[in-house]
Simulated assay, not measured.
Amino acid sequence: MSINYSERVRARNHARKVGGAAGAVGGAATGAVSAAAGAQSGAALGAVAGPIGAALGSLAGAILGGLAGGAVGSLAGARMGEEIDARVLDNFECHACGHVFSISDQ
């Protein structure tokens, strides 16, 4: 059997993309829930500047909690998706013939 190696192969990374998106949504939701704690911390730190500082500190703490949760969730989901792509799915596609395969198929 002859094996032809095409130079027109690309990684599809479907699980990585889906995992990253799902992780971002889940992380942002978790971050939003924990934003209450961030808002309390921000309000306490902003209280030094008076009522306006407490309000702005509370808002900043809530926003940063959601952003941090989304970023961490996205990274974790993408890493898990990479493992699924590498170990479970046929992650590579030949553009010359359309064949999909995994590294272990070679």
Rank of each mutant, 00 (worst) to 15 (best):
Y5H: 04
F92G: 05
N13F: 11
C94N: 13
G20Y: 09
A71F: 10
G61S: 12
R10F: 00
A28D: 11
E7W: 12
I63S: 11
A37D: 07
A22M: 02
S41E: 13
A15E: 09
G81E: 05
A11G: 11
G98L: 02
A78L: 10
V72Q: 05
A22H: 09
A71D: 04
E82A: 03
A96V: 02
D90I: 00
E93Y: 09
K17V: 15
N91E: 13
A32F: 10
D105H: 11
V48M: 00
I103M: 15
E93V: 07
R79M: 06
G23M: 02
E83C: 01
A22Y: 09
G26S: 09
R10Y: 06
G81K: 06
I52F: 03
Y5P: 06
G42E: 13
I3T: 03
S41F: 05
A43E: 10
G31S: 03
L75K: 01
L89V: 00
L56E: 05
L56H: 07
A86R: 01
E7P: 11
V18T: 15
S2V: 12
R79E: 08
L59N: 14
A35F: 06
G98C: 11
G20A: 12
A15Q: 01
G70M: 13
H95R: 08
N13G: 04
A11E: 11
A29N: 11
V25D: 08
I84E: 03
A49D: 00
I52G: 10
A36L: 06
A62Q: 04
G69F: 02
G77W: 05
A37Y: 02
A71P: 02
V72N: 01
V72S: 10
Y5W: 04
I84C: 05
G19S: 15
G42K: 09
A47P: 00
L75Y: 04
G26P: 09
A24T: 15
Q106M: 00
V48R: 10
R87D: 02
E82S: 11
S41K: 09
R8F: 07
A35Y: 05
G46V: 08
P51N: 13
N13K: 06
A15N: 10
G23P: 03
S2C: 00
A86M: 01
A28S: 15
P51H: 05
G46I: 00
V18G: 10
E83F: 03
S41I: 14
R79F: 06
G19F: 13
A86W: 06
A49T: 07
G50K: 12
I3Q: 08
M80Q: 01
P51Q: 11
G53Q: 04
S104N: 03
H99Q: 12
G98W: 07
G46S: 03
A39W: 00
F101H: 06
H99T: 13
G27W: 05
G98Q: 11
A86S: 07
A68K: 10
G27F: 01
G70C: 14
M1N: 03
G81Q: 02
R12F: 13
A35V: 02
A55P: 03
A39R: 08
A44R: 04
V25Y: 08
A54M: 06
V9Y: 10
S104C: 05
A32K: 07
D105Y: 05
D90M: 14
E82Y: 07
G98P: 08
A96H: 12
A60Y: 15
A22C: 00
